[in-house]
Amino acid sequence: MKVILHDLDRCYDEVIGAKCDRAIVADGKYAPCQGCFGCWTKHPAECFMKDTLQQVCRIIGQADEMVIVTKNLYGGYSAAVKNVLDRSIGTSTPFSTYRGRQMHHTLRYGKHDLWKVIVYGEISEAEKRQLSVRWRRGMPSTTAMNGLKSSFWTT
């Protein structure tokens, strides 16, 4: 399954919808993660907040190919995209292990075949450098959590 998570305008819905099996629109209207760990300890892989992101971790977790299209914000994801990712930690389990000589959570769904991030918008040299350094290192736990075969592009 190919999943695209993006924060683009809704006018791109049709184009993006045709390029994937599932599109997740980060429109910035979702409630942020409350840090309760309930998606690990109470109702596994499900958020207690009953909105369209309630089971988003199950969709992201099952994606063979994950593509994220995000506006650059301080050398990272936009707030809207980050909101969706914050709400998707149920892709991992509460158990910990070592990966890349660091502690990480074990994966509920295993690794993805592809994890690609496309960054658009104004981006400074320092931010571009940060993104490339992070990506060369494997984007610490985002990719460690979701798979390691990753890459990023700036537009």
Partner: peptide, 16 residues
């Protein structure tokens, strides 16, 4: 707190 390797989304909104 660190959320998914970075600043939590509600803090990013405030920073903007």
């Amino acid at each position: 707190p660190l959320y998914v390797d970075a600043v939590p989304s509600h803090v990013l909104r405030f920073m903007e």
